[in-house]
Amino acid sequence: MTHVGVPSTYAAVAEALAVLVLLSEFAMLRAPLSRSQVHLYSFQSLVVTGLAAFVAADRHVPGLYAIAGISLVLKVVVIPAIVLRLLRDARVELVPSHRLGVASMVLLALAAAVFGLFVVGSMKVHSTSLPTPALALATAAVLVSFLLVILRSDVVSQAVGFFSLENGVSVASLVVAAGLPLIVEVAFFFDLLVAVVVFGVLMRVHHARTQTLSTTVLDRLRG
């Protein structure tokens, strides 16, 4: 009875968390309600935060606690709160925005994820902080977030797609760059916050102008 590289408990848990990030990305892709997408994003951020704290504790990288803290405040609480507030103001519950059937979307996203997994899986990256499959999973999550932006045509999906892209990159950075200087990480967060504000402003403007959160009306500019 031989096993295919049985991971350590640490690696198994870390990978399971990375899988959870990818799965919540899939869930965002198919979630019918904008509100539940935001909740899923919040959940995903919580997993990423947990992963950061987990790495910080197990690999003794104290700087990561600060990252986890900021990420907890910003990505789990503040950003979802901003978007949810916008949704409440917009009073739109259901935005029909699937460009494809759910099953086809999931299969397409699965194909994208497979691509990401194999491309990065074939790269021999050595990491001291997290098992390398987490990098492949993060890449897959990034690719799925692209599909979320492409395949769903409403502002919330597209904005959440961007935010969760950042989550995927965060996981990737935990794998390959856990020691990233704090000032740089903080700059990233600050930037994320600014981007959120801009997304918020534009969502509001869009809703005020078109009375909808769908982006299918944005088809005037061509050529």
Binding site: V142, V149, F162, V169, V205, T215, L218, L221
Partner: peptide, 17 residues
Amino acid sequence: TEAAWKYVLIASMGLGI
């Protein structure tokens, strides 16, 4: 509005990469 939305979305995704 349309141009700004497309711009911020596409450029942000690009900068994500």
